[in-house]
Design a protein around this nucleic acid. Structure first.
Lengths: 203, 203
DNA sequence: ACCTGAACACCGTTCAAGT
DNA sequence: ACCTGAACACCGTTCAAGT
């Protein structure tokens, strides 16, 4: 009756822990993410997670890392669905970013979590830079084709990142929705954001 | 030897607790903000704070509230220092916002803290709306004078808020500085942000 | 009114010990 | 290798009791 994986060993505890962590945050908020509760749900002792993650911060870093990878993947999928139009791609870059944040608020908050204790995690850094790189490339392509004004691409990417990140944060923290000052729905608010960045305030 | 305030009663515990809370976050990060540690530093039992704040979230809400009031005050002070130039005021609105965030990162993070548990606090909401109102008025004035393009002011204010909030968050979470992709200093990065919003990406 | 101390039900982390 | 249980030093919150 012995298989390669026994009932005693959990098989893929690491993966299970990550899934449970996200579940937990989604269900009960960031404060409910407790290493002991994750272990409980996994049916494992509260010290078992320490075999897979150095500490709580490392668990959070892993969740964040997955998040950036998901974001990049989703954005690329959208790219392949549209014609090769540089401006459309730039727009998709922003929209996909905000939609990811809004659809995965718990995870997104961890990705940019307070006090960034886990930023020195190198896998996480690499994943986050890949996401930024996508944006940067889009801007450069637009400039090459003449659909965006000339200018330092890095500066423009920073502005673009700021606006989509700012909107996402404000939205998921209910700083916008509950204000009731904004009548518009999600979709049109996201359009507003990218349109305003493209058009600017100048006359 | 009896004065109006005895050594037994603390006098102004509430105020002291708020100050200590900010100190604590600045020194040791958000995780170190513990109601027990605040009480310890105030030289008071760990349950005394509950006389002044319903729970930890209420303490945080009070800290956040003070923050918005400080931000509005600082922005208005800058207004009075410059000529009455609508566009300059709009710019100052953004710069003052980002500078407040960067100079008070701990407090700023609480103001937009994860999971907004205290947003239903009405004093906090009022203070935050006052800050947004300032921005909204600036935009309307610019439109009246023809220094900003026409358009729904609310939408434009949301875009402006998003970009300065996004930049502030990215900066204080070291998502920008440690990237080392950006050679620029604080001051010129903030200029970049407002310039990009004003100019836009269009040709 | 304002403050205290004990108590309760939790945490994260460590470490010797088990299979 | 992987997991457990007890232990340590903490939390937030409640509540009867003191001045």
């Amino acid at each position: 009756m012995k298989k390669t994986s026994t009932p005693y060993h959990h098989g893929n505890l690491r993966k299970a822990l990550l899934e449970i962590a996200v579940e937990l945050i989604r269900e009960k908020g960031a404060d409910a993410l407790t290493i002991r509760e994750v272990a409980r749900r996994a049916g494992v002792s509260h010290t078992a997670p320490y075999r897979h993650f150095k500490d709580k911060a490392s668990l959070l870093a892993a969740v964040a890392c997955e998040g950036f990878e998901m974001m990049v993947k989703e954005t690329k999928e959208r790219f392949s669905e549209i014609a090769h139009d540089t401006l459309a791609r730039l727009r998709v870059c922003g929209i996909a970013y905000m939609e990811f944040a809004i659809h995965n608020p718990a995870r997104y908050r961890i990705m940019f979590g307070s006090g960034r204790p886990h930023i020195k995690n190198s896998a996480l850094r690499k994943a986050s830079e890949a996401s930024f790189g996508l944006l940067l490339e889009c801007i450069k392509e637009c400039q090459k084709e003449g659909t965006a004004r000339p200018g330092e691409p890095m500066e423009m990417a920073l502005a673009a990142w700021s606006i989509v990140h700012g909107f996402s944060m404000l939205f998921i923290d209910n700083q916008i929705r509950e204000n009731s000052l904004f009548a518009a729905d999600r979709k049109s608010m996201m359009d507003m954001v990218v349109n305003n960045l493209y058009t600017g305030f100048r006359i």
